[in-house]
């Protein structure tokens, strides 16, 4: 069902937990199964994602995808984060069962919603 990479990320996610001082949050939910991924970003003044963390209610694949999503966006300019795709997350994990591909899409959604949330908050500040 799950390959070794997915299991490792599930059992020892490096980016799990809340992020103190996060200035962007993206929450993506799957309406058909109830999975929820919450992505926290700390974006510095230059617009670079300094830190990324997640909190996820979901299957092992959802947790693994969340963990990978954090790794992929960390260090990127906030605009570049929009380019992180579900395909990249899928590949990074060495593939997912067909029935779990939606988890990578959910993680991509969480990134996009976090970026949106960042601009929304920034717009209010400016």
């Amino acid at each position: 069902m799950y390959n070794q990479t997915v299991m490792t990320k599930f059992l020892r996610p490096e980016n799990a937990g809340a992020l103190r001082g996060a200035n962007a949050v993206g929450k993506a939910g799957n309406s058909s199964c109830g999975d929820v991924i919450k992505l926290y970003l700390l974006v510095d003044e230059e617009g670079v994602v300094e830190e990324a963390k997640f909190k996820t209610f979901g299957c092992p694949a959802a947790i693994a995808c969340s963990d990978v999503a954090c790794d992929l966006v960390r260090g990127l300019k906030i605009d570049e984060a929009l380019d992180v795709s579900s395909r990249e997350i899928f590949d990074e994990l060495g593939g997912l069962e067909d029935s779990r591909v939606y988890c990578s899409v959910l993680a991509e959604d969480a990134i996009k919603l976090a970026v949106e949330n960042y601009y929304k908050k920034k717009g209010k500040e400016d």
Binding site: N30, S32, C33, G34, D35, V36, S99, R100, Y102
Partner: peptide, 21 residues
């Protein structure tokens, strides 16, 4: 167990997706 939909039984008993999951 391969399906991503929550249990049809728990749903029929009125549980939300999150609780069923």
């Amino acid at each position: 167990s391969n399906a991503v939909t929550p249990s049809h039984v728990l749903k029929a008993m009125g549980l939300s997706d999150e609780l069923a999951q």
